[in-house]
Simulated assay, not measured.
Amino acid sequence: MRLGVFCTYENPLNDYAKCFAAQTRLVQHVEALGFEEAWVAEHHFNPDAASPSILVLLAYLAGVTTKIRLGSAAVLLPFRNPVQVAEDVASIDILSGGRFDFGIAKGGPFPLQNKHFHADKDVSRDMTLEALELIERLFHEDEVSFSGRFYQTDAVRLAPKPLQKNMPLWIATTTPEAIRYAAQKGIGVMGGSPFPLQKVADIVETYRAAAPGVDPRLALARFYFAAPTREKALAEAQPFVARFSERMRGIFMAQGKGPAFDAEGVIARSLIGSYDEVIAQVREIQARVAPRSLLLKPASLDADKNLQTLTDFAKIIRPALQASSLEVA
């Protein structure tokens, strides 16, 4: 199982410069610890999750790292011109030396995004899949003429092309139709931090039923904070989780979807606890959904403590997981 971080550019100090600097330091820190991946989320009109310009952020990270793979989790295709996305992704792939992992999505339950980008939520999934088809053709064909429901091109020649001949692709979705589409195309799938493990298992099961023998290459994000005792871990993580839960609950209530995202439920679905508890939780994840990549979202409002708990995962938790794998083998 590969190890990564999930970067949402949390901004508890309401200082964007410090937020960006802290996230950059975190990615460089985990690269030095031997983490294999860093994925960046795309959020808009949200001062607490300050990563709207996801491809700009990833291009910058490409210039300040050397080994770690960089992923988009995910580019929200209905809000962008797909030709421009293809150009930007190709450029980042070259700048990073072929270290880019391209994740896409239609956008979550955030109405302001659809409103301000003039993207009808009822067709956003269709827009996403059509845009992806166009982007893939631009990557692989010399000249592309395309006539779709939402996008049209006439003899477009993409310059530059990505460094990777076969760009690794992922999609973040819980929609069965989109999961089956991904399986048939060999596209990997992503699971979000708050997803119940059963929902993740359902995604994997749907994928494997649609394409037996094809690896879903699951990239699973999880809120994370480990400490010597559960009490210490909870004391550090609860303010972060409460802030996140309140924000999400407000969004869902505004849409008439009723209460959701209670803090206790989010903690129960997270990797938060003592070192031994987190080791047991990761083993359960491995047994039930076998992710290709586990992406940790450190759950403290203190940037330095996030660095420390990631160090603890690398120095204490990962070796224990590797030892148990060797014992089983």
Rank of each mutant, 00 (worst) to 15 (best):
R180T: 04
P259I: 02
E10D: 13
T206F: 00
A260M: 11
A254G: 09
F139I: 05
A290V: 03
A254N: 11
A32S: 15
P298L: 05
E36A: 09
I104F: 15
R292T: 10
R249E: 13
G256D: 11
E177Q: 14
D126N: 11
R149K: 15
K121R: 12
E246S: 14
L326W: 13
F6P: 00
E42P: 12
R25T: 10
Y151N: 04
E177M: 08
Q198W: 09
R222K: 15
E141Q: 13
G250V: 12
I179L: 15
A211W: 02
G188N: 04
D93R: 05
L77M: 12
W170P: 00
L70G: 01
S270Q: 05
K121W: 15
R230P: 03
L307C: 08
A233S: 11
A38V: 04
E133G: 10
S324H: 10
F110P: 00
T309E: 04
D15T: 12
S145Y: 10
A233W: 01
L134P: 00
Y60G: 04
V144M: 08
M253A: 15
L301M: 15
Y224E: 00
P176M: 07
G273T: 02
A17V: 15
F139Q: 03
E143M: 12
T8V: 13
V75G: 01
K185D: 03
Y9C: 07
E87F: 07
I203S: 00
T128C: 15
D202G: 02
G188R: 03
W39N: 00
P160R: 09
L307K: 02
R69H: 12
P82F: 03
V189N: 01
P111S: 12
S91L: 14
A50C: 15
K67A: 11
L61D: 02
L158D: 06
F117H: 11
F261W: 13
G71C: 12
V30G: 06
L33V: 12
A260H: 13
A209I: 04
F35C: 10
F79K: 05
H118W: 07
G258T: 13
A233D: 05
A50I: 04
A74Q: 01
L296F: 10
I54N: 03
A172P: 05
I203G: 00
L58Y: 00
H116Q: 09
G250C: 11
Y16I: 14
A74D: 01
L321F: 05
A105M: 07
L55D: 00
K232T: 09
F20V: 13
P78E: 04
Y181M: 04
G148S: 09
S300Y: 07
G258I: 11
Q198L: 15
L132C: 05
A41N: 02
L271A: 04
D276Y: 07
